[in-house]
Every structure is written in C-alpha cells, then in structure tokens.
C-alpha cells in the first residue's frame, strides 16, 4: 500500500489575482481511501478538477502511476482510469439503469450496431451485485429511485470501466442517514476490491468511518496530512477552521 498511485507535486492554480490552490503536494497510495477536507473555498474542488483534467495547474505537476499528466482533459483522465463522481446531475432521469450506466459508452451488436440491451442489462446486474447494491427493477427509470440509489448508480457507472481511482465529491451530501450508510458501504466494498478513492466531504462522521488518511486544506494551502486512526474529530475540525495552527 505504500506505493503511490497518484502524486500531487507542488500544484498551484490562480484565478485572476486569487490563488485558489497554493503549492499543494500529497501522495495517494494504491488501494487507500483518502479524505480531502476543508471548509468552503479551501481549494478542494480546484485540486480535484486539476486531477481529473477540468483545469490545468499553473505550476507543479501531477503524476498518475508514475506518468506525468499533461494537458489532459476529463475524457483522457477517464481513459487512464481516473473516474469522477460528481455531486449531482450525473444521471439522465428518464432513462433506465443500464442506459445510465452505459451512457456514452453503449455496447452494440449486429451489423447495424444496434444497442446490445441484453448484454448491458446483464453487465449492469453483475456490476450492482459486485458492489452489493440491490435494486429490484433494473428497467425502472432512475427518476423513480431514491437519492441513495441514484448515488449508488452514479458510482457504479464510473466503476464499471475498471477505474483505478475514483474521485467522489460529497457523495453523501443530500442523503438521509440510512442512505448515507449505504453509500459508505459501497465505498468500503470498492476499497476491498482494490480501487483507490479520494473522498471529498464536509461530514466528519463519514470521513472517520471510511478513510485511511486525510489531507486537510485551508485557504488554498495544505495544512495537514493525517492518518485517520491516529487523530480525532476535534483535532481535524480545529485544523479546518484554523483554530489549531499546523
């Protein structure tokens, strides 16, 4: 586990006169769940967007499996195994579950290249079983699913493509208590299967429930890099708010 799959090395991002991310470095080890924490505006999302190719860093570099990522876009990031589960708006409501999981990467068959619905349904079922997600009716439109189920589908959709690393931006933000624990269960299952995860969260309970380590940001800078087992919520909150100066 001590081999980094991703190395963030001194990255900086400026928007006009504002330095959103200031010389941030941290490793992400293969197979771990890393929490990325910080208050609103701390620069978490900007870091994530540089990793998944939405933004390019103004300085510093990001290496994935030892290779430097240069001018990569989100599609290229996906192609090398970095998937991002966005906070919302990831699913197409009127479409059924397999259509959502395979959206943009549909399986085809036959001389006319028709959709291979049967294969997509089978693969979806296998995938949901692998992630221990139990949804009674695959052919229902995702509109009829609960928030937790939708989040589960959104995660599954990214994992199908043999993602090596999954970035999740506040995956439990809009969920109820039980649904939140369901999503955390999926994160644990993924971890058991060797997928590396970066979890952005505001929720201390979530972070302490599933992460191995955490990186804490404040005002664009990395303030701390902690092992979850060796710290406390009070300590972490202190660093996030600046009450404890690191």
């Amino acid at each position: 586990m001590q081999q980094p799959i991703l190395e963030v090395d001194g990255i900086t991002k400026r928007f006009g006169g504002v330095t959103a991310v200031d010389n941030v470095s941290f490793p992400v080890y293969r197979g771990e769940v890393l929490g990325l924490l910080g208050d609103n505006g701390a620069g978490k999302s900007t870091v994530i967007k540089m990793i998944c190719g939405v933004y390019q860093a103004d300085a510093g570099e990001i290496r994935f499996e030892g290779k430097k990522l240069e001018n990569h876009n989100p599609k290229q990031a996906r192609d090398i195994g970095i998937e991002t589960v966005f906070q919302d708006l990831a699913l197409v409501d009127p479409l059924d579950i397999p259509s959502n999981i395979f959206l943009g990467r549909e399986l085809r068959t036959g001389p006319f290249g028709f959709l291979n619905k049967k294969k997509m349904a089978e693969e979806s079922l296998k995938l949901l079983q692998r992630l221990k997600i139990n949804i009674p009716d695959l052919s229902s439109s995702v509109l009829s699913l609960s928030g937790g189920q939708r989040q589960a589908i959104a995660i599954a959709r990214n994992v199908y493509w043999n993602a090596k690393m999954v970035i999740m931006d506040e995956p439990t933000a809009a969920l109820g208590v039980r649904e939140r624990s369901n999503v955390l269960e999926i994160i644990r299952t993924l971890r058991e299967q060797g997928v590396t995860i970066i979890l952005i969260s505001h929720n201390m309970d979530d972070v302490f429930a599933v992460t191995d380590r955490m990186v804490i940001m404040r005002r664009g800078q990395k303030k701390a890099e902690l092992v979850t087992k060796e710290t406390t919520k009070e300590h972490v909150v202190g660093i996030i708010t600046g009450a404890i100066d690191y």
Partner: peptide, 9 residues
C-alpha cells in the same frame, strides 16, 4: 443492503 423503495414508488 436492500434498496427497496423503488418498488414502493
């Protein structure tokens, strides 16, 4: 775990 609310819906 079981996500059964879809059926209820």
């Amino acid at each position: 775990f079981s996500l059964t609310s879809a059926r209820n819906n």
